[in-house]
Computed example of a mutant assay.
Amino acid sequence: MKMHNKYALLLTLLIGCGLGVLIPITQPVQPGTAQAMIQKAERTLAPFELQSAYGQFDQHVLRGQWTIMMFGFTHCPDICPTALSRLAALETQLTALSIPWQPKYVFVSVDPQRDTVTELDIYVRHFRPSFIGVTGHPDQLKLLARSTGAQFQVDNAPDNYQVAHSTMLFLLDPSATLRGRFDINQDLSELAAQLKRFIYMAGSQQN
């Protein structure tokens, strides 16, 4: 059976995590490169309401600190675990740089049918105790995805359950405004340095 054109196009753009297929977005960047690793963006998040193991998670929870957000799901065989492992290493790099605005790290599951908030909490804390896992009603997930520019598709057919999602990570400022997006598949020391400069400059502009 031929795949619908819309879904075929989506899978071309996204990562087919349910199948364990990786479509590289960028090649790893070598240390010392001057290439900009963060794509600038500015978009205010629409109000949304999700859940974490600690209660309601919405745009108000994001206020007051920088946030790095990624989308995925716990049954992802390799791409999500790899990204979370690299994100944990990035947190170590940023902590070592002693930036004054250490970000919060949020993993958004786009697969609420299988990912409960309890399971999410156990899953993300395996990578780093500070990580937060959130999920919720599909409509609310789509709302947050549209606000950040992320995309995902869940096909929950019993005999062929598939999930595809964007692999970019999203940087939100203390006013819960999207400020940038980046690929975690880059040199982490240089990425941390660029994030430090990016956050410092953005913070200075807000003061």
Rank of each mutant, 00 (worst) to 15 (best):
L143P: 00
K2I: 11
Y161A: 04
I68A: 10
I25F: 01
V106N: 06
D78H: 12
Q153C: 01
G203C: 01
Q194I: 04
L84H: 03
R197G: 00
Q205C: 00
F152Y: 15
A96I: 06
R179I: 04
I79L: 15
E190H: 13
Q205I: 00
A53P: 01
G136L: 04
K196H: 13
Q65W: 03
H137D: 15
P31R: 08
Q35T: 12
S85D: 10
Q205A: 15
G16T: 13
P77L: 11
L84S: 06
Q113S: 11
L188T: 05
I132W: 01
A202F: 01
M3S: 08
L90A: 09
N185F: 13
T12E: 14
T33Y: 06
F198H: 07
I38A: 05
H75P: 00
V61F: 07
N185R: 12
L144T: 05
Q102Y: 01
K196Q: 15
P158A: 12
G64E: 05
T167V: 11
A8V: 00
T44N: 08
P174G: 08
N156M: 03
F131R: 06
C17M: 01
V163T: 05
L19K: 11
M1A: 12
P112M: 07
M201Y: 06
A202V: 05
T148S: 03
C80S: 12
A202Y: 02
V154E: 02
S166A: 11
L171W: 08
C76Y: 11
R197S: 14
V134S: 04
Q59S: 14
G203N: 14
R146K: 14
D159W: 07
